[in-house]
């Protein structure tokens, strides 16, 4: 019964979808803000990667919100799973091979994450991806060593300081008499590491923050007792 209703509902939704998207042109150029961004990004922001420029500069407010969403998810997960940590139980340890390799790979993965967020304005990637990679690298250690612990104190500090950096960078723009999150640094030459004004600063802050947050999420979930 439930299935029948669901299928009926989906059939209606699907019908509308198909009707709308059959007329949607695929692969054609569009007028609109996208075109403006493509033509003016390098001039206005100095970033080679237009997507990064949009994410951090033109629509930087979104990114601030996005960081907040992740922050809230980490906080909320902490609140939901509060008081459920600990209790000993027997677990299968990882084999020597996995342990040794994790040790070797852990710094490399973290370095890769750092590379991704430092080069956010030049190559694909940026703060979120870099942070996710760092968190995954820490997870590698969690998986190999049950006793591996991250310091919650340090996580909190990184998280807060990175978040404050982001907000402060925004407020500096406001304090200088322009608008929130406005660039106040020289743009530099495109495709240099030190270019694009505040974009790298924001992405580094985001990278640290997301890395710390996702590590916190994974830690919270892993250390929860069943």
């Amino acid at each position: 019964m439930r299935k029948a209703i669901a299928i009926l509902l989906l059939a209606i939704v699907g019908y509308y979808f198909i009707n709308v998207f059959i007329h949607m042109p695929f692969g054609e150029k569009r007028e609109g803000v996208g075109k403006y961004y493509l033509e003016n990004t390098v001039k206005e922001t100095g970033a080679a990667n237009v997507v990064t420029a949009i994410v951090v500069s033109y629509r930087g407010f979104d990114t601030l919100g996005e960081v907040t969403v992740l922050f809230l998810a980490a906080t909320g997960l902490g609140a939901i799973l509060f008081g459920k940590r600990g209790e000993k139980r027997r677990l299968q340890g990882a084999s020597v091979i996995v342990k040794t390799t994790s040790m070797m790979l852990y710094p490399m993965v973290v370095l890769l994450g750092a590379y991704v967020f430092v080069h956010g304005h030049l190559t694909p990637g940026g703060g979120f991806q870099g942070g996710a990679i760092i968190a995954t690298g820490v997870l590698l250690m969690f998986m190999s060593y049950r006793h591996f612990n991250v310091s919650h104190n340090a996580l909190t500090w990184i998280e807060s300081l990175a978040g404050l950096t982001f907000a402060t960078v925004g407020l500096i723009g406001l304090a200088l008499g322009t608008t929130f999150l406005q660039n106040f640094l020289p743009l530099g030459t495109p495709n240099d590491l030190v270019s694009a004004g505040i974009i790298p600063i924001i992405y580094i802050a985001v990278g640290f923050k997301v890395g710390a947050e996702l590590t916190g999420v994974l830690d919270n979930m892993l250390k929860t007792i069943r």
Binding site: N49, V51, T52, V116, P124, G125, G126, F128, Q129, A132, I133, T136
Partner: peptide, 9 residues
């Protein structure tokens, strides 16, 4: 960019 994010996340 999105491919990278999807891969990471």
């Amino acid at each position: 960019d999105v491919a990278l994010t999807e891969a990471a996340i």
